[in-house]
Amino acid sequence: MKIESIQNGIVLDHITAGKALTVYHDLKLDKLDCSIGILQNVRSSKMGKKDILKIHQEYDVNLDVLGYIDPNITVSIIKDGQTIEKKKLALPKRLVNVKKCKNPRCITSVEQDIPHIFNLTDEANRVYRCIYCEADK
């Protein structure tokens, strides 16, 4: 199997093995019109095995979505075949329209145009709370 190295684009590395397609869908990468490499179960000295996504175009990656999925993913920006920047992820303090509130009593369950917003309330346990109804996510 031959995977071309990227000239200009983004590499998402250290994705938990098996999660590459989740990341692909949550970042809506299916909307891009470029080649995207999805590597699954790649051997890793640190993780045992991991997934990698290679996006062959410049792309403004949503770091909040990525940080929420897995803050350990590494993001490398590639230009002219060189890594010019590595971005560090963190659990985002606020999620806007990343996930939907599932509380049937929440106002977001009946009003379609309200943004679904969650605030991080417990970093250690990754607890997000809906700003409207305060239900856990």
Partner: peptide, 10 residues
């Protein structure tokens, strides 16, 4: 007053 939670917040 609203039956849905968070309506006044929004």
């Amino acid at each position: 007053r609203h039956p849905k939670e968070g309506a006044p917040m929004f």
